[in-house]
């Protein structure tokens, strides 16, 4: 069990950057940069163990109860 203080929040993990070398509409950029679902309940999000091993991880957490269901490495699917 690590202290919350060691971690830094990285936001919604389901947001995908538009692919390179493809036509990208303003709407696509808008969705990538600004628009968020910000779900109540289970939320997949990125955290960094910034005061520790500095790894990025994906966490599935309940945004109303803070219960954590699952954690995986950043490149893995949750």
């Amino acid at each position: 069990m690590r202290s919350q203080n060691e971690f830094s929040y990285g936001g919604d993990a389901t947001v995908k950057r538009p692919e390179l070398n493809k036509e990208v509409s303003d709407k696509d950029w808008d969705n990538f940069v600004y628009n968020r679902k910000s779900l109540r309940g289970k939320h997949k999000e990125l955290w960094q163990h910034i005061s520790g091993c500095r790894q990025w991880i994906k966490v599935e957490r309940d945004t109303a109860t803070h219960e954590i269901f699952k954690t995986v490495k950043a490149h893995e699917d949750i």
């Binding site: 600004y34 628009n35 968020r36 910000s38 109540r40 945004t63």
Partner: peptide, 16 residues
């Protein structure tokens, strides 16, 4: 707002 936006099929530039 995010909760009601979801019921309207809207995604908005807001996080809760």
């Amino acid at each position: 707002t995010n909760i009601l936006a979801e019921k309207l099929n809207m995604t908005i530039p807001v996080e809760t």
